[in-house]
Design a protein around this nucleic acid. Structure first.
Length: 260
DNA sequence: ATGACTAGCGTGGCTAGA
């Protein structure tokens, strides 16, 4: 099973690229973030025509996540538990039944958190607390679980081109990195780092200041695997070339192959 | 010049992203 995550930065602006990529990459499940669309306006027909089931969790203007899948999910849950007042559409979970058992897949768009001297940063940290509580709860099921999405966390200095440039940024604060590490300490595996320890492994390049041609990137899109999923990890990769397409997202697709 | 951003909302220039 090939599972991919992609912060698409506006699904309506990117529908052509999305369809080209679906045909080229042929994933079984796709977790999208920043669809920037309400559910009613999601361009589902073009995606369904390629053989995908579409589940969305959108809102007006910004945020929004979706899960596209060749198989129809058994269950879909929208919203990260732990705060009924949180209106942001940043989290959904789908459960799939396969010949080899159940697979649970989350599409998440973790808050950016900038600037760090505003309420946006504590919102990010509290969201990460809720995510860790959710993850700990799900681990008790002892199922293959993939937490896939834009985590907006640079885990280590090696995950960015210029650590000094990110020192004051919410994506690279010790608190953000610690919360990400706690997810690993629960038993989740960072799938890209499980297969690739090189430098210069990025998933995002800013639109500004020639970041892409200079390869000035960061690694913030992750697929975190529960022990049961990690035990079935066959490969993982980043589809970097997609950043070079016409009208690209600033993020590229990241994927795992699980032996499921 | 020293690579001067993009999408959505909604029609001018803001919010939000990272």
């Amino acid at each position: 099973m090939k599972i991919a995550t992609w912060n698409i930065n506006g699904v309506k602006a990117r529908i052509e690229n999305l369809c080209i990529w679906l045909k080229e990459s042929d994933p079984d499940v796709v977790c999208l973030q920043e669809i920037k669309s309400v559910d009613e306006n999601f361009p589902r027909e073009a995606i369904e025509a390629l053989g995908y089931h579409v589940e969305t969790h959108g809102q007006k203007g910004f945020n929004g996540v979706a899960i596209l899948s060749k198989a129809t999910p058994e269950e879909v849950m929208r919203g990260l538990p732990g705060d009924d007042t949180d209106e942001h559409a940043r989290f959904m979970e789908a459960v799939f039944s396969t010949e080899n058992g159940v697979v649970r897949i989350v599409s998440l768009y973790l808050p950016n958190g900038n600037p760090i001297d505003t309420p946006k940063f504590p919102y990010k940290l509290s969201w990460m607390e809720r995510l860790n509580a959710f993850a700990a709860d799900r681990l008790a099921l002892e199922e293959p679980l993939v937490l896939a999405g834009d985590f907006n966390v640079i885990p280590e200095p090696v995950d960015c081109y210029s650590p000094a440039a990110w020192a004051g940024d919410a994506l690279f604060q010790p608190e953000s990195r610690n919360a990400f590490r706690r997810l690993e300490n629960l038993g989740f595996t960072d799938s890209i780092r499980a297969v690739d320890d090189r430098t210069g492994v990025y998933t995002f390049w800013d639109y500004q200041a020639g970041a892409w041609p200079k390869d000035n990137g960061i690694r913030i899109d992750h697929l975190m695997l529960s022990p049961e999923a990690a035990n079935r990890l066959k490969s993982a990769g980043i589809e970097k070339h997609v950043r070079g397409w016409e009208r690209p997202s600033d993020h590229v697709p990241v994927f795992v192959h699980l032996d499921i």
